[in-house]
Nucleic acid binder design. Structure first.
Lengths: 152, 152
DNA sequence: CCTTGACCTAAAGTTAGGTTTAGAAATTAC
DNA sequence: GTAATTTCTAAACCTAACTTTAGGTCAAGG
């Protein structure tokens, strides 16, 4: 099977270790999330530390981060040496801040849902779901007015 | 401007009221989220209650529901009469359950993040981020092993 | 009446995040 | 040494949720 250690991991070995598809790993390279080198024959070789790097990518995706965002997070890692636990802990705190914000937004939306739809009144001047500042939505194409009323 | 009341709303008027693009409303019709009738000239006419219906669609999207899922939720509404506050309150409770689950998942992931990356140890046998049961991810393509280790 | 703006349909284009395919070259297994 | 895997690149394809475009029709104001 996959030969190892000093010569680096092949893309297939990395795929086995992470559970990602080979095609996904190539795609991530194209997106700048990982930067393997090439062996004499032109094949990609990866560091063992890249297993953790890709695992981080997968976890961040679960939290709803886009690949460009994840790239931004990963850029906090050291360039020329293998990241230490401290490096990961540092990046993780940024990560956690954004995550907290995301959870808070969801909770606020939930609470507003209770007040707005849940209560049955559906009175809109006081509806807080109306045009919330920080949307979870990806492609806001301008202001949107929720629940049927406009801001004046 | 938009003529009103007894003859129903034009698609443009509905777009103004909801903040949605006209093209988006047509798309929602194609997806079965809303069913206008046509006037003599073949143009779409909507009920005023459809403003709220589309607002609900937008809110549900913020919570991460897909259009098919939202269609499922809307099917709980009465077919032949204008939905009452009670109708909306009922649909909202289903909605809220799913929302609570989503928030809980995020919180659990956050807590695991603290234990796994946040502590700096990165010890994987005890990492709970490893292959969590309920992923937020859409297209799981089989089991995935996180943070570099495999389940044996 | 006539012009301008709103609306119509159908089809193609867009972005994100990948997968699939095709044909060729490198590696590994026996 | 040869057969079976892997890997390579480039390009096409995929889904979701829309938008844009093209070419034509409808409706409202002056």
């Amino acid at each position: 099977m996959a030969t190892l250690a000093s010569s680096g991991l092949s893309i297939g070995a990395l795929a086995d270790r992470t559970g990602l598809a080979v095609s996904a790993i190539r795609y991530y390279e194209a997106q700048g999330l990982i930067t393997p080198w090439r062996n004499a024959g032109g094949q990609r070789r990866f560091l063992r530390a890249d297993i953790r790097r890709l695992s981080f990518v997968m976890i961040a995706q679960q939290f709803g981060f886009s690949l460009p965002e994840i790239r931004g997070l990963l850029e906090q890692l050291p360039n020329r040496r293998t990241p230490t636990p401290k490096d990961w802990a540092a990046i993780s705190s940024t990560f956690r801040d954004r995550l907290d914000a995301r959870i808070e937004t969801l909770q606020r939306l939930r609470d507003n849902l209770d007040g707005c739809i849940g209560c049955g009144c559906l009175s809109l001047p006081k509806c807080k779901l109306y045009n919330p500042k920080d949307r979870v939505r990806a492609k806001g194409t301008g202001p949107r007015y929720l629940m049927g009323d406009r801001p004046e």
